[in-house]
């Protein structure tokens, strides 16, 4: 699946130098911040599945929530379909909310257990006036059918359903407004493997049918290899490398990417040989309160140089469409 096969031309979402800091008190008179997102620039084209990968604590969810307007950005701009949407969600127009939706990670807490499925799915239809009062039931049945659930689920409460079914309801709710762009925040990581596959296939089918654009957040690299058109790697609030999926897995440039790829567990020897280069992963992700000077990855980098400890590298286009933020390629 390479870029030119699809007509990936129009940019649907552009994030420019986005920063989201959280204040966490003071130390020695200076205010301390958690730099959850620290200068991210990203373009997502219409119709693609952009994979956003990173370790726990790398800021990928914060980036998603900032784009959704759940956190106010400290700095930078978010441009969605040509409109500046850097304001919090309460100040965004209904039409932006209609086009931009999110599926959360935990289907247990993203559905109100005091409501039944009908009430849950009714909300987006009523708010955006998608169905008339008489047409509500029919539309809800359609939504359930879309996520392959029988109509009688309408009267069930989320508490009486399994995790996979709940996540399908979450997806149905997000797609009820017929959005253009959907952020999937680790939609399968809380589910067991057999259901994961079902949900992923359903998401892919819906993406094709409705021409959706996904920003797919995950820490599962093998999943990205199978579904994403492009992959971005995030480390400590910054993007290290962005590339079309094929390039990304065959010719990774950033040392961090190589480290991640070689840490994917494989079953057979042949698969092991397919891996680019053996890099032993060392250390833990540092605290985002105390970001190291220079390149934030230099503490764990096997190819560290003098310059890495002092100067933070800029993002460069090492190959066409393949961006990397590392002194090796500067």
């Amino acid at each position: 699946m390479s870029g030119d096969a699809l007509t990936l031309t129009e940019t649907i979402l552009e994030v420019q130098n986005l920063k989201t800091y959280f204040s966490v008190g003071k130390a020695e008179g200076k205010p301390l911040f958690v730099k959850a997102v620290d200068g991210v620039s990203l373009k997502v084209k219409r119709g693609e599945i952009m994979g956003l990968v990173g370790e726990s604590g790398s800021g990928k969810s914060t980036l998603a929530y900032t784009v959704m307007g759940m956190y106010p950005p400290t700095e930078g701009k978010i441009i969605f379909q040509g409109q500046d949407i850097s304001m919090p969600s309460a100040k965004r127009s209904l039409s932006i909310k209609k086009d931009l939706q999110i599926v959360f990670q935990d289907p247990g807490s993203s559905l109100n257990s005091r409501q039944n499925v009908r009430q849950i799915l009714e909300l987006p239809l009523r708010v955006h006036k998608i169905a008339s009062k008489n047409g509500l039931e029919e539309k809800i049945v359609q939504l359930l059918k879309m996520v392959e659930l029988p109509p009688n689920y309408m009267h069930k409460s989320p508490a009486s359903m399994g995790g996979g079914e709940r996540q399908m309801i979450s997806i149905a709710r997000a797609l009820a407004t017929d959005p253009q762009f959907v952020i999937l925040d680790e939609p399968t990581s809380a589910l067991d493997v057999s259901i994961q596959a079902k949900i992923i296939n359903m998401l892919l089918k819906l993406q094709e049918e409705k021409g959706l654009t996904y920003l797919f957040i995950t820490h599962d690299l093998s999943l990205m290899r199978n579904i994403a058109t492009r992959v971005a790697i995030m480390y400590l609030g910054k993007i290290c490398e962005t590339a079309p999926t094929e390039d990304f897995f065959q010719a990774p440039l950033h040392p961090y990417t190589r480290m991640l790829l070689s840490s994917i567990p494989v079953v057979s020897e042949e698969e092991e040989e397919l891996k680019p280069k053996k890099v032993v992963s060392t250390g833990e992700i540092p605290s985002p309160v105390n970001v190291p000077p220079g390149c934030s990855f230099h503490l764990r980098c096997p190819e560290k140089r003098e310059v890495c400890m002092e100067v933070d590298p800029e993002m460069v286009e090492a190959e066409p469409g393949h961006f990397v933020r590392c002194h090796l390629y500067g």
Binding site: M68, G69, D106
Partner: peptide, 28 residues
């Protein structure tokens, strides 16, 4: 701060809906 309240807000539900239909039933 539960995700289901966030989800309703992101859909565009009004304050009255959030307070009386999402939050209140969970306090009853």
């Amino acid at each position: 701060n539960e995700y289901f309240v966030k989800a309703s807000e992101l859909i565009g539900a009004g304050r009255l809906h959030i307070i009386f239909r999402e939050i209140l039933p969970n306090c009853l």
